[in-house]
């Protein structure tokens, strides 16, 4: 079994593929900062066996509804699988593209968002934000 980090070795090579359950992520997550200029709410729900994620902004600097997408990658806490605790999603909002890494940490959903502005005439920089959400 190939690996490029020691922790990716698996002693039991006959192991069943690790199951990955997204149910711990389900629900409506609200920004802990009610005055955020960024993302206000994240909603995670099941569509069959697929996780669907909706992002909403405050309607001024961010669109009020970014739409609902399926994560590009859904991750457990280790190579043995189990509850999903992290995902990556991507949004194309026209004037910018946003790639988001989300992870659960002690009951909070931590959102790291990377904003790529598309031909921004004002010359603004691409930017990064990190925000915290509770149920």
């Amino acid at each position: 079994m190939k690996y490029l980090r020691m922790r990716d070795q698996v002693e039991n090579t006959g192991a069943e593929p690790g199951s990955l359950s997204p149910s711990d992520l389900f629900g409506s997550w609200l920004n802990t900062n009610k005055d955020t200029p960024g993302i206000t709410r994240v909603t995670c729900r099941a569509d069959g066996n697929t996780l669907r994620v909706r992002f909403e902004g405050n309607g001024s600097s961010e669109p009020s509804d970014w739409g609902e997408v399926t994560p590009d990658v859904l991750c457990a806490a280790n190579i043995h699988g189990g509850p999903a605790m992290s995902f990556i999603v991507s949004f194309d909002l026209g004037f910018k593209k946003v790639r988001i890494g989300a992870n659960m940490n002690q009951g909070l959903l931590v959102i790291a968002s990377y904003h790529s502005l598309q031909n921004d005439a004002a010359g603004r920089s691409n930017y990064f934000a990190r925000e915290f959400f509770h149920r």
């Binding site: 192991a15 199951s19 990955l20 859904l74 991750c75 806490a77 605790m85 995902f87």
Partner: peptide
Amino acid sequence: VISLTEFQDGSGRSNYWAR
């Protein structure tokens, strides 16, 4: 550094997150 790893080799290793 946050890494999100996806295995594509059928080894049964789960996708996983690390910081």
